[in-house]
C-alpha cells in the first residue's frame, strides 16, 4: 500500500551528539517492527507538520539505537537540528540497497569518504570491526574541509587500531596543527597500501569527489566491478514512486543509493543526467 509506505512512525531521540559545525547525530529508539538497517541504507526522518528528509543510517548501537548524522542544509534539517533528547520524530525505512558487505567477504575493503559521506560508511567500518576475521585489509581514506569538519572525531583515530587497518586523513585546509595530509582525499590513494587484485572500494562523498576517486582507482588498477558508490539524489518518497531521484532509468532510492560502478557508469558521467 502506497499510503502505508508513506506513513511515518514515531521514534524517540535517545541521544544527540554534536559532530561538527552544523552537523549532529541523532540516536533513535525505533518503532516496534522496524527492521534492522543494512550498512548503506537510509531512512526518511519526519518532523511533524514540517516535512521529511532522507538520511543515511550512520550506526546501529549494541542497544539497537539507530544513528542518523544530519547536516543542517534546508527547511526540515533546520528544525530537526533543534530537536533534543526525549523528542519524538517520525521515521520510515530502512530503504534502498546497501554496501556489498557480503560480496566483500574474504577481500580487502577500501573506504573513500568525503565530508558527511563518512556517515553511510561508518556502519561498514563497524561491520568489519565486528566480523574482523572475514575480511582482509581495511583501508579508510577520509577527507573534510578542515579538521573541525571531520565526523566522529572521538572515535576516528581508533579506526587505525582495528587490526590490519590503515587510516589516512586529509583536509582542504589545516587551520592549525594538523598531522594528516592537506589537499584532496584522492591524493591519499597512491599513498595507501592497496592491493588492486583483491580490493572492493566503497566511495561516498560529493559527486565530483567520487568521480576523481574513480579515476584514481583506475590508475592503480581497480576495475568497475570492484567499485561501489552511494549516490545522493532528491529521495522524496524513498520507495521508487515519486520520481524525483531518477538518474537515467534508475530510481536511486530503490535501485541504489549504493550502486556498483559498472551498472551506472553509462549515465553517471553524463553532465546533468
Amino acid at each position: 500500500m502506497v499510503e502505508g509506505r508513506l506513513i511515518p512512525k514515531p521514534a524517540v531521540i535517545e541521544d544527540v551528539v554534536d559532530e561538527a559545525p552544523n552537523v549532529r547525530t541523532f540516536y533513535l529508539r525505533m518503532p516496534e517492527g522496524y527492521p534492522e538497517p543494512k550498512p548503506g541504507q537510509f531512512n526518511e526522518l519526519y518532523v511533524m507538520g514540517v516535512g521529511e528528509v532522507p538520511i543515511s543510517v550512520s550506526d546501529v548501537t549494541q542497544e539497537g539505537l539507530v544513528a542518523h548524522t544530519v547536516r543542517v542544509a534546508g527547511r526540515v534539517t533546520e528544525v530537526l537540528a533543534e530537536a533534543s533528547v526525549g523528542d519524538v520524530i517520525g521515521v520510515r525505512g530502512p530503504y534502498g540497497k546497501g554496501w556489498p558487505v557480503e560480496q566483500a567477504v574474504g577481500k580487502d575493503v577500501l573506504i573513500v569518504a568525503g565530508g558527511i559521506g563518512l556517515a553511510p560508511l561508518r556502519p561498514v567500518i563497524r561491520h568489519i570491526e565486528r566480523n574482523r576475521a572475514k575480511y582482509g585489509k581495511l583501508t579508510i581514506l577520509y577527507g573534510a574541509r578542515a579538521p573541525r569538519h571531520l565526523l566522529y572525531k572521538y572515535e576516528l583515530e581508533k579506526y587505525a587500531s582495528i587490526p590490519n587497518t590503515e587510516l589516512l586523513l586529509s583536509v582542504d585546509k589545516a587551520e592549525g596543527p594538523w598531522e594528516g595530509h592537506v589537499g584532496f582525499v584522492t591524493d591519499l590513494i597512491p599513498k595507501a597500501d592497496i592491493d588492486p587484485e583483491r580490493t572492493i572500494a566503497m566511495i561516498c562523498g560529493p559527486e565530483i569527489m567520487m568521480k576523481f576517486t574513480i579515476k584514481r582507482l583506475y590508475e592503480i588498477g581497480l576495475k568497475d566491478n570492484q567499485i561501489y558508490l552511494s549516490l545522493e539524489r532528491r529521495m522524496r518518497c524513498g520507495v521508487g514512486l515519486c520520481g524525483h531521484c531518477q538518474m537515467g532509468p534508475y530510481f536511486v532510492c530503490k535501485h541504489g543509493p549504493v550502486f556498483p560502478h559498472w551498472f551506472i557508469k553509462k549515465y553517471f558521467w553524463v553532465e546533468q543526467i
Binding site: 508513506l6 506513513i7 519526519y46 511533524m48 507538520g49 514540517v50 516535512g51 521529511e52 522524496r236 518518497c237 514512486l241 515519486c242 520520481g243 524525483h244
Partner: peptide, 18 residues
C-alpha cells in the same frame, strides 16, 4: 507523467495532513 511531491500541512492540534 506520474511524479508527485508530498506536502505536510500542520494542523492546529499539533497533527498534520499528508
Amino acid at each position: 507523467c506520474f511524479c508527485f511531491d508530498v506536502i505536510d500541512e500542520p494542523e492546529l492540534d499539533g497533527g498534520a495532513v499528508r
